[in-house]
Each structure stands twice: as C-alpha cells, then as structure tokens.
C-alpha cells in the first residue's frame, strides 16, 4: 500500500473546500509547495495569498481576515508556524477566538535531513497551552482529510499537526470515523491501553501485532484530538486497563502523554508510560533512522509494554 503524507491530504481537501466557499482564504509563508496549501490555487487562485517569509505577520493577517467574516487557513512548517508566530497565535487569534485554522506541516523529527532547526518536538505543547485552541494530530492521510473538514466546520481557532513523510493507511478512504474530541478505539484488548496520535498510530498497530504473538492483547486508541482530550474514553478505559502507554512523535513534556496524564492523575490514576522524545532536540538523518534513534518505533512500544506490565 502506498504511503501518503498527511500534508498531501490537506492540500487535496483544501481544493474541495475552497471551490465551494469564497469566504475561505489560505495564507502561506513561502512554503505553499511543501505544505501543499498551494494546491487550491488551481481552483481558487484569488483565495490564496502568499505572505512571504514572514510568519508573524501572516498569523495576525489571518486574524484580521477572520475578523472580517472569513475562514482562514494559515500554513507553514510547524516549527515556524507555532514557534516564530506563537505570540501572534496567542494574542491575535486565540484570545479573540477568531476563525483561523493553523495547518502546519513538517512537524516532529520525521522532517528528517533538515535537522533540529526544522524539527519541532514542542508544537503540541505550545498550542495546547493556549486557551480557546483546539489541537488535532491525524494518523494518516485519510484521517487528515477528515480532520481538515472537521476544523473547517468548527468555529474558532484550531491547530492541525501534519507531517512531511508518508504514513501507512490506518483508515480506509471514505470510512474514517472522525469526531473532534472523540478518540477512536481501533482495537479492543485488555489490561494495556496504547494511546497514540499522528504517525505513531501506525507504530502502535504494528506493536499490537507483535504483542499479540507474545500473548498480550493491548487496546489501541487513535487520540487524534489532543485538546480537548477525550476524558470520557480515558476514564472508561481506566476501569478495565491497568497500564496506559502513550505514543507521540513529540516531546514527552506537554504533548499527548501529558494530556492523558492530566486526566488520569485527576480522575482515575493508573500507571502510565510515555513513549516520545525525551527532552532532546532532533538531528539530521532519514526519518526511519531518527525514529529508531529517538525511541519511536513499534519495537520501542513493545518493550515499554513488556517492561511495565505487572
């Protein structure tokens, strides 16, 4: 099966949406070929504005356009969208609750060869901390397409985390269950609950195959919406599972693992292990080499489960 990047799905979905809505605008900061935001120029060239290499201005321009009754998608690499323009997102978009969808690609270390300057491992943490902000990290291209449609329909500021590299199909096209704020239980198992987001969902599913061979049958959840996190699902899983393993291509500080821990520790304390990047910057390398070196493969998930099962 072909691996498709979530950013490809973003570009294609924007084409569909822009064609039907002349109040939809797309801004990009000189990366419209990479983020795929530029694909919609074929159908709605006058609804795409290149802001040049000036992310801070782009975000506040997006705010001004949204304050004028438009739905605005603003794209760049996740590092620059959320890092460079953090304060514009906070003060000009989130505080006034404006209808801007920050759809940022090249998140995490699977950016690969560009190295640490372009590999954000803290974007979820940054965006999750902002009041009014919704945070989504889709697992594959099919889910990304649904995520983009869902945030388009949802009034208010949203952050959608997209990747550079191709990912396996977790879902079948046209048959993706996707409700913002509701995690998807992909497999019902017992004792161990593996909660993943983004490209780590495919790794979690691979880990499940291996664990099953060893007599362990974990539950697998695609927690595509990191904020608001699906508390109801987590609390319900806590009734029947004793170990939670969170998996994310992000720092274990402030990301999915933290969001899950915040619920468990307050509502249903259970043992939790975090698979993620351990307070480190990335480096140049192929995505596969980096995932292996930074502990983000199915094998790492298997080991985390086995080591922590009682």
């Amino acid at each position: 099966m072909a691996k498709i990047a979530t950013r490809e799905a973003y570009g294609k979905t924007l084409v569909e949406l822009a064609e039907k809505d002349d109040h939809l605008f797309v801004l990009d900061a000189d990366l419209s070929g990479s983020t795929k935001s530029g694909m919609m120029k074929k159908v709605a060239p006058h609804q795409h504005f290149n802001m040049g290499i000036a992310e801070s201005n782009m975000m506040a321009v997006a705010a001004g356009m949204a304050a004028s009754g438009n739905t605005v998608f603003a794209s760049s690499f996740a590092m620059f969208a959320t890092g460079r323009a953090y304060e514009q997102i906070r003060n000009s978009i989130a505080y006034p609750k404006l209808n801007v969808k920050i759809c940022a690609s090249h998140a995490g270390i699977t950016v690969g060869e560009d190295g640490a300057s372009h590999q954000t491992v803290e974007d979820i943490s940054l965006m999750r901390g902002i009041p009014n902000m919704l945070v989504v990290c889709p697992a594959d291209a099919n889910a990304a397409s649904e995520a983009v449609k869902a945030v388009y329909k949802k009034e208010g500021p949203c952050y959608v985390r997209l990747g550079r590299s191709g990912v396996d199909e977790v879902y079948t096209e046209g048959a993706v269950p996707f409700t913002l704020g509701k995690g998807n239980v992909l497999h019902k198992g017992e004792k161990v609950a593996i909660i993943a987001c983004g490209m780590m969902v495919q790794e979690a599913l691979l880990a499940k195959e291996q664990l099953q061979k060893e007599g362990i049958n974990p539950t697998i959840v695609d927690m595509h919406t990191i904020k608001p996190i699906d508390e109801e699902l987590l609390v319900s899983l806590a009734q029947t599972h004793t170990l939670f393993v969170t998996c994310e291509e992000h720092s274990i500080i402030g990301g999915l693992g933290s969001a899950v821990a915040e619920v468990l520790v307050q509502k249903a304390p259970r043992k939790q292990v975090m698979v993620g990047i351990r307070d480190l910057f990335g480096e140049s390398g192929t995505p596969a080499e980096l995932l292996s070196k930074y502990g983000l493969t199915a094998q790492h998930i298997v080991e985390a489960v086995k080591k922590n099962m009682e």
């Binding site: 002349d22 605008f25 006058h46 609804q47 504005f49 801070s56 201005n57 975000m59 506040a60 321009v61 997006a62 705010a63 001004g64 356009m65 949204a66 304050a67 004028s68 009754g69 438009n70 605005v72 304060e87 514009q88 003060n91 000009s92 505080y95 006034p96």
Partner: peptide, 24 residues
C-alpha cells in the same frame, strides 16, 4: 474592531481586514 495590546500585531490585523475588503 480588533483585540490588541501586543505591539506590532494590530497593523498586521488591519492589513488582513484591508486584504479581505479588497478580495470581496
């Protein structure tokens, strides 16, 4: 017409409003 306070951002928002008025 716009929430402001952090310097430098209001003019960008105004640019966004003017851009929207042009587009429509």
């Amino acid at each position: 017409d716009m929430s402001t306070g952090s310097l430098g951002q209001g003019i960008s928002a105004a640019v966004g409003m003017a851009l929207s008025n042009k587009a429509h």
